[in-house]
Each structure stands twice: as C-alpha cells, then as structure tokens.
C-alpha cells in the first residue's frame, strides 16, 4: 500500500509463456478503444475478465471481493494507456494486481503475511465440498472454486486458483509468486493429487 514501485516486467512480456492463443481481434479492438477512454470498450474488457477476477477474489478474500475487484479495475485504469500486450498478458497483469491486493488485505488484517488464503475462510463457507455425491451440473462456478480451495494449504490454493481461475501458465504463476517454475509444478502436483484423493478417494491409486 505504501511501498514504492517495483520495477516489474511489463505485461506484454508474458506473451508466449503459455499455450499460443490466437490474437483476438475483438480484444485488441476493445483494448485500443478502452485506452482512448471509450466506455463501451471498457465494458467489453470488464465482461471478459471480471467474472474470473471476482471468482478469484471471492475465494481469496470473500468479504471484500467486490471492493478489491473495483480497486483492481481502477489500478488498471490508471495504467491502461501504457499497456501493451495481448489478452493473455492483460489477464496476467490483472491477476498480478489482484493477488497483490489480496495479500495487502490480509496483511492489513494482521493475518497471514504470505499466504492470502486462510483456510478458515473456506471452512466457513457452506461450500459443497463433496461434489462426488452431488450433481456437478448444479455446481456453480464459485462453488467449484471453493471446492478446489477448501482442502488445500494456502500455497497450493494460490497455485491452483491462478492456474484454474486466472488461467495462467506455470511460468506466469512462477513469476507472479516469486518461485521457480519447477517449484510451482511441485506445488501443483501436490494439489492435484490431494484434490483427486478428496473428490475420488476410492479411485486414486498410490
């Protein structure tokens, strides 16, 4: 909140870190118009990205998720004119800011300093944490996110949410959380295994 700026990479640098995506003309057109301050274009960006953003924030800081989302958008607004990159880079940028806000939030609350996902948050939720016995069709996206987050330690939650909800690559997540890609993969493997055991305890071997 009060720290000085850190020289971090520009969003565009992330391009190519993950699976190749078609340059999305709709996104690029909307980005350009949004950079010129056109509301319709901002709305396009909002609709494309706020659902995942809010999903992430609701999992990480449910009581202030909407507030944090607004702050993320405003932070992006202040830098939007200077943004260069594709939609993937845009997303990475957005979640980098979002993650910071989550960390700041918990830091201000005097809780975890490095792990922004206190488990009690999830345990407090009336989440259907056992989808194996329920109709998955009825599982809302947010409930699914909660189910993913409910049974993991914070470091694994973070990686899983950034990969599943934010849609970031291992490399992007690694850069964001300050770990090596290999370390992220280890965390991710642990998380997947743990989740599989939870969702299908009888079927997971080993």
């Amino acid at each position: 909140m009060s720290r000085g700026p850190e020289p971090e990479p520009r969003p565009g640098r992330h391009a190519g870190a993950g699976p190749a995506e078609q340059p999305d003309q709709e996104f690029l057109a909307a980005l350009e118009a949004a950079q010129a301050g056109q509301d319709w274009a901002v709305a396009v960006l909002f609709r494309r990205h706020n659902p995942r953003l809010l999903r992430y924030l609701r999992a990480q800081a449910p009581e202030v998720a909407e507030d944090l989302a607004s702050e993320v958008w405003m932070a992006m607004a202040r830098q939007l004119v200077g943004f260069e990159g594709d939609e993937r880079a845009f997303r990475a940028w957005m979640f980098t800011i979002a993650r910071r806000r989550v960390i700041q939030h918990w830091r201000q609350k005097g809780r975890r300093r490095t792990s922004p996902a206190p488990n009690e948050v999830f345990f407090d939720r009336a989440a259907p944490d056992d989808p194996s016995t329920e109709g998955l069709q009825a599982l809302s996206a947010q409930d699914a996110v909660a189910a993913l987050a409910a049974h993991l330690p914070p470091d694994q939650v973070e990686v899983v949410l950034l990969r599943v909800v934010a849609g970031l690559s291992v490399e992007e997540v690694a850069e964001m959380v300050g770990k090596s890609p290999g370390a992220v993969r280890v965390t991710q493997h642990r998380a997947l295994r743990r989740l599989a055991e939870h969702f299908s305890p009888e079927a997971v071997t080993g």
Binding site: G4, E6, E8, P11, A75, Q79, V81, G82, E84, W93
Partner: peptide, 11 residues
C-alpha cells in the same frame, strides 16, 4: 505500488 506491477511506458 499496484501499478509498479507492469510499468507501462508512461506511468
């Protein structure tokens, strides 16, 4: 600090 994230060309 939030914007330092990306350092656009014209901060």
């Amino acid at each position: 600090d939030d914007n330092g994230t990306t350092e656009p060309s014209e901060p």
